[in-house]
Design a binder for these strands. Structure first.
Lengths: 157, 157
DNA sequence: TAAATAAAGGTCAGGAAAAATCAAAAGGTT
DNA sequence: AACCTTTTGATTTTTCCTGACCTTTATTTA
C-alpha cells in the first residue's frame, strides 16, 4: 500500500496518463481534502516526485482561481540534454530521483532498456555506499557523465 | 538449532520460497519484534546471508512506510562472469585495469560498444574522484554490479 | 478607485516513523 | 589465548506528515 505520499503520487500520475496531452491542472486544497491531509502534503509530493530530473514541470498560481499545473516534459532535443548535464553536475541526487531520470531516458529512447538496467545497477545505494559520505553527489556526477556521453555519441564523436 | 541469525535466515528463505515471484517485503522492526531481538540483528542477517554473491538483492527505504525488500535473483552459477563478479566485489581496480576489462567485454560481445562507452564514462577518475576516498574500491563494486546485471539479463530474470 | 477582504498557493521548522551504522560486548572455536 | 561470529544498544540518517505563518491574486465594498 505504501504511504500517503505514494498514493497521491499514483493518483496524479494516473490522471496525467489519462490526459493524453500530458498536462493536469488541480486545486491544491481540494486534493488535500480528497486525501484528508494538510495542503502542504501536496507540495511535499510534488517536490519529491515531480521534479525536473524526472521530467515534470510544475507551475502554479495563487489567489482566487488558483491552480497547480503539472506538465510531463519530454527531452525534446540535445539542448535540453546539455542543460540537464549542467544541472546534475555536483548536485545531490538520491536513488529514487536518479532511477526516475533513467527510466525517462529509456522511455524516450535515449537509452535502451538494457543500458537503463546497467546504469541503474551502478547508481544503486548499495554499490555507491562504500564511501558513504555523500554518494548523492557522486550520483549527480555519474548521471551528468552519462548524459554527456550520450550527447557525444549523437554527434558521432 | 543453530543461532538466531540462522533462524531468521531460514524464516526469510521460507517465505521467499513461498512467494513464487521471489520477492519478499518486510518491516525490519516487526521482524525484530517477532524474533525478540534488536532491529540491527536483521541487518546482520541480511549482510551476511543475503549478499549479491549469494544471489540476493536487498533494497530498503527508511522513514514512514519504510520497508526492506529482498529479491532472489535466479542465476545459474559458474559461468566466467559470475567468477569475475566475486573477484571484483570490494577489490581495488584502477582506471586502466577497469577500461581493459570493459574493452574485453565489448570484444567478447557481452557489452555493446555504446554500453562500453557509457560505463567507461562512469568509472572515469574524474567522475569518481570527487571525494577522493578510495575510488578504486568503488570501481570494483561498480564493475561487479555491471557483471551481475549482465548475468541476470542472460537468464532473462 | 483605493482599501479591505477572501481565496488561493508557498515555505519552513519540527516531530514521528522507520531503517542504517558502528563499535562494543558476548559467545564459540581452534 | 587469539580469532571469528553473533548479539546488543546508542546514535545517525532518511522519509513522511503536520501546522503555523507568509505571499500572491481576485473580488468586494466604502
Amino acid at each position: 500500500m505504501g504511504t500517503l505520499a505514494d498514493e497521491i503520487e499514483r493518483y496524479i500520475k494516473k490522471i496525467l496518463e489519462a490526459s493524453h496531452d500530458g498536462i493536469v491542472e488541480l486545486q491544491r486544497n481540494e486534493l488535500a481534502l480528497q486525501f484528508s491531509c494538510v495542503p502542504s502534503q501536496i507540495n511535499y509530493v510534488l517536490s519529491t516526485r515531480f521534479t525536473t530530473e524526472q521530467g515534470y514541470i510544475v507551475e502554479s498560481r495563487r489567489g482566487g482561481g488558483g491552480y497547480v499545473r503539472i506538465v510531463k516534459a519530454y527531452v525534446a532535443d540535445d539542448s535540453e540534454l546539455s542543460h540537464l548535464i549542467r544541472q546534475l553536475k555536483g548536485k545531490k541526487v538520491n536513488q529514487y530521483a536518479a532511477e526516475g531520470l533513467i527510466e525517462r531516458l529509456v522511455e524516450e529512447d535515449f537509452l535502451t532498456k538494457r543500458e537503463g538496467l546497467l546504469i541503474k545497477a551502478i547508481i544503486n545505494n548499495e554499490v555507491l555506499d562504500n564511501q558513504k559520505k555523500d554518494h548523492n553527489i557522486l550520483r549527480g556526477n555519474i548521471l551528468s557523465a552519462i548524459l554527456f556521453t550520450l550527447l557525444k555519441e549523437e554527434f558521432g564523436a
